[in-house]
């Protein structure tokens, strides 16, 4: 068990394994996406209140879930990298940031497009959208800090501390934004009201959530491999394997 773990953490093994795993994540993700989109757009009945506009939920909610999940994953990877000085964990954290930021952008944009027919305006200071926006700022800060160091080891460790501080702050942000919004009488239609969701409406959502997770995993494999190459550019194994191919 431990031997397997150490092998995984060694860059040449990780580089090879990630390449092997990738197709097993990518193709199921694409298949599930097709199924989920078909289920969401065709098979699910229209919502009695929001009509067909509710179908946006099938892309909005998975993006929003991923944006948060990726941040937590980034912080955990950063903490592992900081504590056990594991290069691979830092490579994972570095790869997570741009992907998570894009999921956050998606959640924001689809949320505001959804808001237009529901609220009559593109932007409402809804608690969920507001905390997504703050999450985007956290991602941007992380990436800006990482980019401002020339030395990759220092960039890894400094940004790891920021990711950990940020993840401690995320629940506080969520709670404070909800509290802040509860003081006002917000718009009565909530884009995420779970009251009247039937089973035929739920399963495409779960399928698409799983599809997004797998798809993220597939992209992460590629990105982590790229980051490994960047961190290992002066090692013998890399020179050998590059010359062979």
């Amino acid at each position: 068990m431990w031997l397997w773990f150490y092998q995984l953490a060694s860059p040449p093994h990780a580089y090879r394994l990630l390449g092997l795993w990738r197709p097993w994540l990518l193709w199921p993700a694409i298949a599930l996406m097709v199924i989920g989109v078909y289920g969401g757009l065709v098979m699910a009945p229209a919502d009695y209140q929001q009509k067909d506009a509710f179908r946006i939920i099938y892309v909005h909610v998975p993006s929003a879930s991923l944006s948060l999940m990726v941040y937590v994953m980034m912080a955990v990877a950063a903490a592992i990298g900081l504590i056990w000085r594991m290069k691979l964990a830092h490579a994972v954290a570095a790869s997570c940031a741009p992907l998570g930021a894009w999921f956050t952008v998606l959640a924001l944009v689809t949320g505001s497009i959804w808001g237009k027919p529901m609220w009559g305006t593109w932007w409402e200071w809804d608690p969920r959208l507001t905390s997504e926006l703050i999450l985007l700022f956290l991602y941007l800060g992380y990436m800006a800090l990482r980019a401002s160091f020339d030395d990759i080891q220092r960039a890894d460790r400094a940004s790891a501390i920021l990711a950990i501080v940020g993840v401690v702050n995320v629940p506080i942000v969520k709670y404070s934004v909800e509290w802040w919004n509860s003081l006002h009488q917000g718009p009565s239609i909530s884009v995420t009201s779970k009251s009247a969701i039937a089973g035929s409406m739920v399963w495409p959502l779960l399928v698409l959530l799983l599809a997004f997770v797998l798809y993220f995993g597939a992209i992460l494999c590629n990105r982590v491999r790229g980051e490994i190459l960047l961190r290992e550019r002066n090692t013998a194994w890399l020179a050998e394997s590059s010359l062979k191919s």
Partner: peptide
């Protein structure tokens, strides 16, 4: 609204 969300 729906198609722009899916497209984006």
């Amino acid at each position: 609204y729906v198609w722009s969300c899916y497209g984006l």
